[in-house]
């Protein structure tokens, strides 16, 4: 072996592989940031503010309790709305799966609901209800409920019939049947449902807060719009994006543990 190659990192080393992975994760964001920064030198700050200004505002929001509490309020609204919709979705999904009558009544209703725009639900909520938190919870549930319900129904209907028969052949109790068969079988689709609905919910909550709230990221965005403060608007948006990314990451970590039984193919 020559001196030149002696200290070189092998092409298939884990360090190099990690660096390559990191590069491809960062590359698109670096590209967007570079384009934005270049644009900021040619346009006024209210159109394209410098990324340094945006970064300073992000830090300011994250370190000032009166502002960061708005981010937390929005995050909690998203989680509460999703949890509520998920719980109701599970109940409705099980009803649709087990009862033909429930299927005939609920499926068309939920399909109809799915066609109603989020903004219409915002208007309905403002007309129907007084409390801000209840309005937002209502909007969140109504906009994400159909998707959760249909995903629960799909997961239940997609359970492997052979495995179901095997499990039933041992005559388990209802609790055992649920914990050993139903829960693990539907969990992958449930997690996917959460991931998809998390994105939808973060968009809907901002609209709800923008129109009908006196706090939260949506309300703050309205303030920035009135002040024509693009750096502030971006900084508040990024706070919400960070929250969504953080929650998606937590779900992914859970998936890694929960689905470690899955075979991995070398060829994808």
């Amino acid at each position: 072996m020559s001196d030149a190659t002696h200290g070189a990192v092998p092409a298939n080393s884990p360090v190099l592989a990690f660096a390559r992975r990191l590069f491809w994760i960062a590359a698109p964001f670096v590209l967007i940031a570079a384009v934005w920064q270049i644009a900021s030198s040619f346009f006024p700050p209210f159109l394209f503010p410098s990324l340094i200004d945006v970064f300073e505002r992000v830090v300011e929001i994250a370190t000032t309790w009166s502002q960061f509490s708005s981010v937390l309020a929005t995050a909690l609204r998203i989680l509460a709305g999703l949890a509520g919709a998920f719980l109701i979705g599970v109940v409705l999904g099980v009803a649709i799966y087990t009862s033909d009558i429930a299927d005939r009544l609920l499926t068309p209703t939920l399909t109809f609901f799915q066609g109603i725009p989020a903004l219409s639900w915002v208007v309905f909520a403002i007309i129907w209800f007084h409390g801000i938190e209840f309005r937002i919870l209502f909007i969140m549930i109504m906009t994400t409920l159909p998707a959760f319900t249909f995903q629960v129904v799909g997961a239940l209907r997609g359970m492997n019939k052979d495995l179901l028969e095997m499990v039933m052949s041992f005559r388990p109790s209802r609790g055992k049947y649920f914990s050993a068969m139903v829960l693990p079988a539907v969990l992958p689709e449930m997690l996917t449902a959460w991931k998809v609905n998390l994105g939808n919910a973060s968009r809907v909550v901002v609209v709800a807060e923008l129109v009908g709230s006196s706090g939260g990221v949506g309300f703050q965005l309205l303030q920035q719009q009135q002040l024509f403060d693009m750096a502030g608007a971006l900084a508040w948006t990024l706070q919400l994006v960070f929250f969504v990314l953080l929650f998606q990451w937590l779900l992914s970590q859970f998936e890694r543990v929960a689905f470690r039984y899955r075979a991995k193919s070398e060829r994808r």
Binding site: M166, F170, S173
Partner: peptide
């Protein structure tokens, strides 16, 4: 329950359980 056991044409193992946990399933019931 416990009086009849079935071996199917395909193994029908629960993919989320290890071999020993699959064998334990009937006993859990």
């Amino acid at each position: 329950r416990g009086k009849m056991a079935i071996v199917f044409q395909s193994d029908r193992l629960l993919p989320w359980r290890t071999a020993v946990k699959n064998v334990e399933f009937g006993l859990e019931s």
